[in-house]
Write a protein that binds this DNA or RNA. Structure first.
Length: 579
RNA sequence: GCACCCAUAGCUCAGCUGGAUAGAGUGUCGCCCUCCGAAGGCGAAGGUCGUAGGUUCGAAUCCUACUGGGUGCGCCA
């Protein structure tokens, strides 16, 4: 049930009538017709721009269209007032039983807010995809939270979603990892070791070196790299992925699949993807111009194998092979996305850190070329997280060993607070994360404020059980006509917006909208609660009047249920009570 | 030099893909809180939506050019 979509359908039906009776000409597009809540509640419950968007193509005065439309709409018993306003807005006021029905649906229909937007289409959300060389840090945390919430949002909206992590285990950085682990291995055997430039000195590799020792004993000591590199690389990568999986589990993030870059090599998939592009005339040998204004020191023209990404919207063509004939990192990325297309996904979303913004165009070009434009790829970039402690910037330095890991964050504030807070900002805006403020119990902390609303409902319901039957099944049948105070109606109207909000968030791939909606809903709920201080008749529990109590509890239970739906999308489990 | 992202109240940020008088929190100022629902409540002030043009019934939103900040830019993944 989406009230706005229902009313819009009524508007469209009336417009069709007007075409039939000659008020409007035939063949008009109603695509731009919207029905939305007016900014100013005094204007009514809903407004449509139909008359204004149709005036020009129909060559009819907008106010005249609006007037004729109003006369048709008013015949619908759901619509009690339809007024023309301003340049041609049509403001509507809905009958009270329409609003009461919203509460009942929210209360009884567990799918309230879900939509069929996705039509069961197969969608992949690829996120995190951090190099398997160490534990996840705060930046990855944001990507993980965002990607996971986005995946849940899309699933909620009717997409068949697959969540995937691409493991960059084929490049030079895993060789570096292997060498670093080898040093820790030597150390575990009692040798003095130094970590030269270009190795990973982090402590987290100590147990890996120890584990390697436990596994192979002294077999690798005093041996050349060619003897141990491959095995150590594999061993270390697996250990790192175990670590990363544990980190993600701490956050409540579970992947459907982990896709290994290395698995692309030797299977011919890279070759196949590139020859696919070649068949489309998009692969050629050539020499790139040096980037202007920033000439690399050792620049010299080299002939390479290039992908004509400019044919699909990129700024320059991109190399897929180095001058020595080996693949660039871009080639397996192409192959991986080719594989996604081959697996039959209808839509793709990649979540990258903002520092990978430069790869957006080329990846889109590759997918566009490989799917002949059939499979849309949306790439969402997550901006930096700035850490604070008690208002003071928290300095991070890998060198000083003070870089903050996902584990540090989750251990200190918990997965729920971490997740919610990281979704209180648009993905492309920088995020401040203050270890103290996110735990603050006050109105300016959305995490607390939303959960507090939920907890308040619970305590009211608990209190109400002493005076009336307030289980959801009973509440579903109670008379709600007594909910007429403006604060009560504000809450109901906010509940009615939920399905529409979800749809908007899903269309834009913007889970943060869910977090903001929940804050607004909580805010309206708290306002109603506060009004009960001055007006005892608004209090949820009316001792001695079980009918009224049931109606009020029905409303706030609906609030709690929608909060649960919303938090579910964000992957947040609320506390049942505040202490 | 080029590309992408960003610019909205003193501060931190929303703004429903073009709608009506641009919102919230915080901060500031004023009032309210012995108890019956205060981990607060009510109200006020605060804006040239970076600048200048353009598109149209209508622009914070779309287009162009600037200004300022971030990110990135051939054999690194």
């Amino acid at each position: 049930m989406n009230l706005f979509a229902d009313i819009r359908a009524r508007v469209i039906a009336c417009l069709d009538d007007m075409v039939a009776d000659g008020t409007l000409p035939d063949g008009l597009s109603t695509a731009a017709v919207t029905v939305e809540p007016p900014r100013d509640p005094a204007h009514g419950d809903m407004a449509t721009n139909a008359a204004m968007v149709l005036a020009k193509p129909a060559k009819v005065n907008p106010r005249a269209i609006a007037q004729a439309l109003a006369e048709k709409l008013i015949a619908d018993p759901q619509i009690v007032v339809a007024d023309v306003a301003g340049p041609g807005f049509l403001n509507m006021r809905l009958s009270p039983d329409v609003w009461q029905k919203v509460v009942k649906v929210a209360l009884t229909d567990p799918t309230y807010g879900q939509s069929t937007l996705g039509q069961g289409q197969k969608m992949m959300v690829e996120y995190v995809s951090a190099n398997p060389t160490g534990p996840l840090h705060v930046g990855h945390t944001r990507g993980a939270v965002f990607g996971d919430a986005l995946a849940r949002l899309m699933a909620y909206s009717g997409y068949d979603v697959t969540k995937e992590y691409y493991i960059n285990d084929g490049g030079a950085q895993v060789d570096v990892l292997a060498r670093s682990v080898y040093l820790r291995y030597l150390e575990a055997h009692g040798q003095e070791v130094a970590f030269p430039e270009g190795t990973y000195p982090g402590d987290y590799l100590v147990p890996v070196g120890q584990a390697l020792k436990d596994k192979v004993g002294d077999a690798f000591i005093d041996k050349g790299e060619e003897f141990w590199l491959e095995e150590v690389r594999e061993f270390a990568t697996e250990r790192m992925m175990d670590l990363i999986r544990e980190d993600l589990a701490q956050l409540g993030v579970t992947m459907d699949n982990f896709f290994s870059e290395k698995s692309l090599y030797g299977t011919g998939l890279i070759e196949k993807a590139i020859s696919e592009l070649d068949a489309k005339g998009l692969i050629y040998r050539g020499t790139l111009e040096p980037p202007k204004g920033k000439l690399p020191e050792d620049w010299e023209p080299r002939e390479q194998t290039l992908f004509r990404s400019t044919a699909h919207g990129d700024d320059v063509d991109r190399p897929v092979k180095k001058s020595d004939g080996s693949w660039t990192y871009f080639a397996p990325d192409i192959a991986y996305h080719y594989d996604k297309v081959q697996r039959g996904f209808d839509q793709l979303i990649d979540v990258f850190g903002a520092d990978h913004g430069g790869y957006v165009k080329r990846m889109k070009a590759a997918v566009s070329a490989l799917s002949d434009g059939r499979v849309p790829l949306d790439i969402k970039l997550t901006q930096l997280v700035k850490l604070y402690k008690n208002g003071e910037p928290f300095k991070m330095s890998k060198r000083a060993g003070t870089f903050v890991t996902l584990r540090d964050v989750v251990d200190q504030v918990g997965p729920n607070v971490t997740r919610f807070h990281m979704l209180t900002r648009k993905n492309d805006a920088p995020l401040d994360f203050d270890f103290d403020k996110v735990l603050e119990q006050s109105k300016d902390n959305p995490v607390f404020y939303v959960n507090y609303a939920y907890a308040r409902v619970n305590s009211a319901v608990a209190k109400a059980t002493m005076f009336a039957a307030v289980d959801d099944a009973t509440l579903a049948g109670v008379d709600l006509s007594g909910l007429t105070d403006e604060a009560e109606l504000a809450v109901i109207k906010k509940l009615a917006e939920w399905p529409r909000l979800v749809e908007i968030a899903a269309k834009g791939h913007e889970p943060h909208r869910i977090a903001f909606y929940l804050y607004d809903l909580a805010s309206d709920f708290h306002a109603l609660y506060n009004r009960g201080n001055d007006m005892p008749a608004l209090r949820f529990v009316q001792e001695g009047d079980s009918d009224t109590t049931q109606a009020k509890i029905a409303l706030i239970r609906a609030v709690a249920i929608v909060i649960l739906h919303g938090l579910g999308i964000l992957g947040v489990t609320p506390a049942e009570e505040m202490r």
